[in-house]
């Protein structure tokens, strides 16, 4: 071998900035995780010291970021194929895969440790399990093997309000599991709406999303079925006393809008190659689904953080 100096032409990898690592943590997902966890923490019947509560939420955000980094490390091969994900830090060559893995593992340990110190052992255990569930069960196993990937994998995204609840109380009660169920049932129609217009990319990457394996018609039918289940389920917190009048109004109006959007998608030919204009219904439903979940948890936050909680149902 000659005595030549080797200089990296892939300057980007060695030039990765702190912002690239922030992007590795999926900040948009993290913001939803923080928001739903805060709702769980605030709605819990036990008050937490503001500082420890803030640290618990911070630990949860780190845990979410760790899971995101591990996901990006493992999925860098298929992320590089899909236009929606090709600019992510690993496939874009900004961060080396091994660095993403190390970062994810270190952040996982730090976040769980911080949660155990700030909150309760149960909250830390649930956080560790949710990171494992997202990174291993969903990303490494379900995502590439079954069309039900989003259905089962949705559990990972449903944990934050439960963790928030466990951080405040040290246990998990019925109301916390209702919040879990709400996100769990909301996830499939939300993601399937997205997959209706990204199915070609998923197919190219070999990811068996529902439109890829069962077709657009079956996907639209499943979207409607899940929306018919999740919208009445969204009213359940009112019956248990977790949600009050404000929550009832938001859940009723939001649920109606969400259901209307799902019916419009069902009646359309969204996702079919010969009906490109109909995809607007799927895009509209995707947006409405985000607004629906945001509004539900915002209502819970407002009712419990401010003295505006007027319960209608009996507490469980």
């Amino acid at each position: 071998m000659s005595e030549a100096t080797i200089v990296s032409t892939t300057t980007a990898i060695a030039s990765a900035s702190a912002m690239d690592y922030v992007r590795l943590m999926k900040p948009r997902v993290m913001s939803l995780v923080v928001f739903t966890a805060m709702a769980g923490l605030v709605a819990a019947p036990v008050d937490m010291h503001p500082f420890t509560a803030a640290v618990a939420i911070f630990a949860l955000a780190l845990g979410s970021g760790a899971a995101g980094a591990l996901n990006m490390w493992y999925d860098s091969d298929i992320d590089g194929i899909m236009a929606r994900t090709v600019s992510r830090p690993v496939p874009a060559g900004l961060i080396a895969p091994t660095d993403a893995l190390s970062f994810g593992l270190i952040m996982s340990v730090l976040s769980v440790t911080l949660m155990a110190l700030a909150a309760t052992p149960l909250a830390a255990a649930l956080l560790a399990f949710s990171i494992f569930f997202y990174a291993v069960v969903y990303t490494m196993w379900l995502k590439r093997s079954t069309a039900q990937n989003i259905v089962i994998g949705g559990a990972a995204g449903a944990f934050p309000p439960v963790i928030g609840w466990a951080a405040a109380t040290g246990n998990v009660q019925t109301d916390a599991w209702i919040l879990f169920g709400l996100i769990f049932l909301w996830t499939p129609p939300h993601f399937w709406a997205l997959s209706l217009w990204t199915s070609k990319e998923y197919a190219r990457a070999g990811v068996p999303m529902l439109p890829v394996t069962k077709g657009a018609t079956e996907t639209r039918r499943q979207i409607l079925i899940y929306t018919l289940v999740v919208t009445p389920f969204g009213l359940l917190p009112v019956a248990t006393g977790l949600g009050g009048i404000i929550y009832l109004v938001v859940a009723a109006l939001g649920g109606a809008a969400f259901l209307c959007a799902a019916i419009r998608v069902f009646m359309s030919r969204a996702g079919e190659t010969d009906a490109p204009l109909d995809i607007r219904h799927a895009k509209a439903m995707f947006g409405i689904s985000i607004l629906y979940l945001f509004a539900l948890f915002a209502a819970l936050l407002v009712e419990h953080a401010l003295p505006l909680h007027f319960a209608l149902g009996a507490g469980l």
Partner: peptide, 29 residues
């Protein structure tokens, strides 16, 4: 082997910035 990796000025600056962020994060922790 006589081979070595030489970082450019931009890469060296980026590495220094990353190091500063890590130090700051550890201190904050």
């Amino acid at each position: 082997t006589g081979e070595r990796v030489t970082l450019s000025l931009e890469q060296t600056a980026a590495r220094r910035r990353r190091g500063q962020w890590i130090a700051l994060a550890l201190f904050a922790f």
